[in-house]
Design a protein around this nucleic acid. Structure first.
Lengths: 350, 350
DNA sequence: CACGCGCAGGAGAGCGCTCTCCGGGCGTGG
DNA sequence: CCACGCCCGGAGAGCGCTCTCCTGCGCGTG
């Protein structure tokens, strides 16, 4: 070779590849993107030139003309306690539930060459940032995992006509696509199991009752119990945390010492409840049968291991991603929701 | 207004804002980016025009000229078991340790207006994808959290001269920046505590011994024990999982029934060990004192709650991010490493 | 054999932005 | 009072790519 064409200064461009291949820029572009037909021979020459130059298409330049970023925002949205700066992010990222969501999202997106950008929307500036990010075209749409009921972000996204899909039905109706679980069916599964086991005094620890999922689990549980002849079910509201589960279980035990079955609206609270039951000398499942919800890792690390209702979180996350890409490709698409079915995982606690 | 300037078709551009404000494109750009001085009056006019048009700068166009993406890749790299498609991603995202990393990364990056793109590099194509992503300029650099010792990615990144920072010292030396914990110091903390408590027959459950962190924890522990007059420490190798901790504890108990203290190289294994100790009727901490490492959530949900060595993971992640941005801004920067100090968290298990 | 159609490759415009280079107006010092 | 320099706004070139439009050529058909 007569002298290195250039020191490793700027990366090679389409133009460079074209020159090496002895064809036009347009042709190289066609080969790389597989649009239209290009002569076999020329294709090979171009590919050789690409290898030789070490060419990688510049994403910014491409985005500029295609108006596609090839990325989506994966937004975790919720209430940041003012003062507690990053506490919200810490809490949610540490939650294995979110991990399963992320895993499902990634698993699907990687098949489509799309990458997720992680964002937290816990404060007003952070929400603005998400909106700006999308309006700038940095991401083609948003996957929104919202943790609290009054999240303003879904409505804002709809208003801005930005493609977005939620992980769960929004608390107040918003014309937006979402995936969700049939929570009532899940609670029913737990109720049926507890009753078939022979429990006759069953209580439930609910999630925060402003969250639709909590409401649905409670409703489903009550209805199923009623159908089994137990119209009255003691309840204690928790906050989806282990500590709140402990507190709720204490209350339940104080008011209804004869309880022989408990359905906790998630595993973390079940774990807390378990601790309290042990503390009060109740054997699980012999004295009190305990069922959880989510099939998260605490369910396995508890002793006894938790009988629980499993959400197909990864599938749901994949479904959410698919829905979003559909909306990105076809902006006019009407909001759609996809509901997934839960499954009862029977282990040792009930 | 004499007729809507345009239906909400294409988003407003700099040009549009300039027209509305009655100034040139360059001036609007200057106001928005705060480069150079611009007359107060004009600034206000421009800002008004921005608000009126709802302008948001197009990131692709900006990147094209600035050669900065404003994003970094947050790469989780490790060995994907062939066949088990997304198992690797599921495992790591579900690990609260990674959650803390993500939280720390985000917490720092948001102060700098940079966003992380989540990527998994568990297979060869996935690694190629990461490299391509960076070479395309889609991200300005990579934050690499590597889970296995023989990860080829760090070396590849260095070869490609792409800015990258690792979360831990690579197993084989590579000229690359990283943050890490003083693992030996952490193990020393645990050893000192166990000995001061009065333990005289102390064993350790190590992590996988091809991982530098595991080696360091073991070395630090041994040296500290030796200094206390215990030159021989029984060890059992685990794999950083709860199950491997159980198995290791079983082995230890079989070979050394008189053990009265155990240091597990992470909390998950400590949790497993705890289960086995209970099973064998050993009271913790009375019969056997148990210390973990990481201060992850299992440490709190165990009973007794785990005494453990805390890594300042969030700080480390923030430090890693800062290091990366430094490298992005100053490409010539030499590799640098920052070591963080661990802290002993004394709870109930030891 | 002439004409037309289709297909493959080239030319070139422009996506929206930043930034360098200019020019004009004003302030200041000689 | 003039000249020089400084400061601020405008003009315009390009960043690297895609895509439309055009051109030339080969083939099929009447």
């Amino acid at each position: 070779m007569g002298g290195m064409s250039r020191p490793p200064t700027t990366p090679p461009t389409l133009e460079d590849v074209a020159r090496v291949a002895g064809v036009s820029r347009a042709t190289v572009s066609r080969v790389i993107n597989g649009t239209r037909n290009v002569d076999r021979k020329i294709q090979e020459v171009v590919r050789a030139a690409v290898d030789k130059t070490g060419y990688a298409p510049n994403r910014a330049a491409r985005s500029l003309v295609t108006k596609r970023a090839g990325t989506v925002a994966l937004v975790v949205s919720g209430a940041g306690d003012p003062g507690e700066e990053d506490a919200f992010a810490a809490r949610v990222f540490t939650d294995p539930f979110f991990g399963r969501v992320a895993s499902g999202v990634l698993g699907f997106l990687r098949t489509r060459g799309v990458h997720p950008v992680l964002m937290v929307a816990d404060t007003e500036p952070a929400r603005e940032d998400v909106l700006a990010f999308l309006r700038q075209g940095s991401a083609d749409g948003a996957l929104l995992v919202s943790t609290h009921a009054e999240d303003p972000l879904p409505a804002r996204l709809v208003d801005a006509k930005l493609p977005a899909v939620l992980f769960a039905r929004p608390a107040r109706p918003v014309p937006i696509s979402y995936v969700d679980l049939d929570h009532q069916a899940g609670a029913r599964l737990a109720a049926d199991h507890l009753v078939h086991r022979g429990c006759t005094q069953v209580a439930t620890i609910t999630g925060p009752l402003d969250v639709p999922a909590s409401q649905d689990r409670l409703t489903g549980f009550r209805e199923a119990m009623a159908r089994h002849g137990f119209p009255y079910v003691p309840i204690a509201e928790g906050g989806f945390t282990s500590g709140s589960g402990e507190a709720a279980m204490e209350r339940l035990l104080a008011e209804h010492p004869g309880i022989d079955g408990v359905f906790a609206a998630n595993d973390l609270m079940a774990q807390g409840a378990l601790l309290v039951l042990h503390k009060h000398g109740r054997r699980v499942p012999d004295d009190v049968a305990l069922a959880g919800f989510d099939d998260s890792s605490p369910a396995l690390s508890c002793r006894p291991r938790l009988t629980t209702v499993r959400q197909p979180v990864e599938d749901m996350a994949a479904g959410m991603s698919r829905l979003l890409l559909d909306h990105v490709e076809e902006p006019g698409l009407r909001p759609k929701s996809v509901i997934f079915e839960p499954e009862l995982i029977v282990r040792d606690s009930a």
